[in-house]
Amino acid sequence: MRRAVCPGSFDPVHLGHLDIVGRASVLFDEVVVAVGVNASKNRLFTAEERMEMLTEACAGFGNVRVAGFTGLLTDFCTDQGIVAIVKGLRVAADFDYELQMAQMNASLAPVETVFVPTAPQHSFLASSLIKEVAGLGGDVSGLVPGFVLERLTARIAERSRGA
Rank of each mutant, 00 (worst) to 15 (best):
L18M: 06
L18W: 12
D19H: 13
I20H: 06
V31W: 12
S40E: 15
S40K: 12
N42W: 09
F45R: 08
T46Q: 09
A47D: 13
A47L: 04
T55L: 09
A57R: 07
C58H: 10
A59D: 05
G60V: 09
G60Q: 03
F61R: 08
N63D: 11
V64D: 04
V66K: 10
G68A: 12
G68Y: 06
G68P: 12
F69G: 04
F69W: 08
L73G: 03
D75I: 01
D75Q: 15
D79F: 05
G81W: 14
V83D: 14
I85H: 07
K87P: 01
G88L: 03
V91A: 14
A92L: 14
A93Q: 13
D96V: 12
E98L: 12
M101F: 04
N105F: 02
A109E: 13
V111A: 10
V111N: 04
P117L: 13
T118H: 09
P120I: 02
S128H: 01
L129I: 04
G135Y: 05
L136N: 08
V144M: 06
V144C: 11
F147P: 00
F147Q: 01
V148P: 00
V148E: 03
V148F: 13
L149Q: 10
E150Q: 15
L152H: 01
E158F: 02
R159G: 08
